[in-house]
């Protein structure tokens, strides 16, 4: 394809900040110290990522260790990265007080987002990403009413986040209550496109038995971002029904997630990137390979290889 200058790129790459490394005191993540954070950011920048995504619960370390999100973002920029693009709101989903399908918990959820968005307001975010339902076993049986109540909840949350200039976007884990194709379609039929977007995680949809490319094509007009990661397994039986979290506890599979380009990966990334191009998407694609260190894996290596794949395979299709 013809040369595209740095300024003309339609796609930029962000790294979702799962990480582990071995330090003198044993395994640590990047939030262990300023030194480990610096090493993490250097590695992300060195391989060609443009930015990072992070988790909402890290905000306490941002305040405690760095002086807040803006100060932490200064450190990110000092290492050559542009900014923090998205944050993932990893709520606990306790059915007593935080369950989108239970209207009596909505007031608590809305208040959580009013507070949360205030905390993040000192920096510019594109998306706040949520799992749109409780864990599957806390929501089943999945009924149309429950999907409707969930949609109503996120419509209101999305209105709050929009007030802060941030999109509310839904990320459907294979073990959450809204993961099958018909349930996802029903859920979006009740949501307001102005306030609720879809965030396509290629591996999660594959594990749940969906074709992520087809899902994206159907909802492209309201897709606000991606997690590009791979998997080698589809969930079977009741893989999606294990406490506390099927990503960890499903009996059939010890490691669900792999970096892009892994052998025997189920995600058709070339078709995905072609769809991204053909739908005219411009903006950020986030790369993720959570739990990459399981079964002998290594975050540094997986991160380098995923960026290698983005550069040498996907950018040949669209950049």
């Amino acid at each position: 394809m013809s040369a595209v200058t740095e300024d003309e790129r339609a796609i930029k790459w962000s790294y979702m900040d799962h990480w582990r490394s071995n330090g003198p005191t044993g395994p640590v993540d990047q939030w262990h110290s300023h030194k480990t954070m610096s090493a993490f950011l250097k590695q992300i920048k060195a391989t060609g990522f443009d930015a990072i995504d992070t988790f909402d619960f890290r905000i306490w370390q941002m305040y405690g260790d760095y002086g807040g999100p803006a100060k932490y973002q200064e450190m990110v920029r000092d290492h050559g990265l542009e900014r923090i693009v998205n944050t993932f709101h990893a709520a606990d989903y306790d059915v007593r007080n935080y369950a989108p399908h239970l209207p009596e918990t909505h007031a608590n959820i809305l208040e959580d987002f009013r507070v949360t968005m205030g905390r993040w307001s000192e920096i510019e975010l594109d998306n706040i990403i949520v799992m749109p339902a409780t864990l599957f076993y806390d929501m089943e049986p999945i009924t149309e009413d429950k999907l409707k109540y969930s949609a109503e909840c996120w419509n209101k949350v999305g209105e709050i986040t929009a007030g802060f200039g941030v999109k509310l976007t839904c990320h459907h884990e294979f073990f959450c209550g809204i993961q099958s194709e018909p349930d996802i379609e029903t859920f979006y039929s009740y949501t307001d496109p102005r306030y609720v977007s879809l965030f396509v995680d290629t591996a999660q949809h594959c594990i749940a038995g969906l074709d992520p490319v087809a899902l994206y094509d159907r909802h492209a007009h309201r897709v606000s971002g991606f997690h590009f990661k791979d998997t080698r397994n589809v969930a079977t039986g009741d893989d999606h029904r294990h406490r506390p979290d099927s990503e960890i506890m499903a009996p059939t599979t010890g490691k669900w997630f792999y970096e892009m380009g892994t052998p025997h990966g189920l995600v058709d990334f070339e078709a995905m990137m072609t769809a991204v191009r053909d739908n005219g998407y411009r903006g950020w694609i986030s790369v993720e390979h959570d739990k990459a260190n399981k079964e002998g894996g290594d975050y540094s290596e997986s991160t380098a290889i995923s960026r290698w794949y983005a550069k040498n395979v996907l950018e040949e299709i669209y950049r």
């Binding site: 920048k45 290594d298 290596e301 380098a304």
Partner: peptide, 17 residues
């Protein structure tokens, strides 16, 4: 030195930056 991938990435950052 340690994890070869990690060190290659840190060395790359040093060269670039």
């Amino acid at each position: 030195g340690g994890n070869p991938a990690e060190l290659a990435m840190l060395n790359s950052w040093y060269l670039q930056r």
